[in-house]
């Protein structure tokens, strides 16, 4: 799965008006509820780089100076960059870059078919358990649409992995024969 572009997300969160670093962190975690929460350090480091590149500018400071007292605003250049990012289609799966996939390949290379098979079975069990957790998030009566949409994203990807795991379990013996002729 692709890495999230934190700089662009922060630019997006600033599009509605200037904000402090801690407000940005809070808005990020609220809008992207299933994402890895942003660390404060990461927010300030990213803001620093965005400022250096002219994409954001400080928009006033409280009396006591310090990074957490500074509000940031989008510059015109920042707005253009954000706009460009939003109009660019992401390349759909340019590479099969998945640890899960690589692990099965390596297991087949270095060990017998049972090693790969037991890994596939264990991984399928872990995926199924996670699928159940995320489904419970969704069916909780207090779930917001943000929760549901974020959980659905993860569920759809887990489901795709599960189908692949299942299909590959059925092919792993033949595959091993191909790898070790």
């Amino acid at each position: 799965m692709g890495e999230v572009s934190t700089p662009h997300v922060l630019l997006g969160l600033l599009a509605g008006g200037s904000r402090h670093g801690y407000e940005l962190k809070r808005a990020h975690d609220e809008r992207l509820p299933r994402a890895r929460p942003l660390a404060f350090g990461q927010v300030y480091a990213t803001l620093g780089r965005l400022e250096r590149d002219g994409l954001v500018a400080t928009a006033g400071q409280d009396r006591v100076a310090g990074p957490d007292r500074t509000a940031y605003a989008l510059t015109d250049q920042g707005r253009d960059t954000l706009d460009q990012w939003l109009s660019t289609v992401e390349p759909p799966m340019p590479y099969v870059a998945s640890t899960l996939f690589a692990k099965v390949v390596v297991a087949l290379l270095v060990a017998d078919v049972d090693r790969a098979r037991s890994y596939l079975i264990a991984q399928r069990a872990a995926h199924t358990a996670r699928l159940r957790e995320l489904t419970a998030v969704k069916t909780d009566p207090s779930a917001t649409l943000s929760d549901v949409v974020a959980a659905d994203f993860a569920i759809a990807h887990l489901d795709a992995d599960l189908r692949w795991l299942h299909a590959t379990l059925g092919r792993v013996a033949d595959w091993h024969r191909e790898v070790h002729p």
């Binding site: 079975i121 264990a122 199924t128 358990a129 699928l131 159940r132 489904t135 887990l158 599960l162």
Partner: peptide, 28 residues
Amino acid sequence: PRIAAYADREIVLRDGLVDHTGLGLDVP
């Protein structure tokens, strides 16, 4: 699997018999 994930528990049948049952966990 994604529909079964709505349940508290899963019972897997195979050839007319209960193959296994649990939280969808085949192995620990």
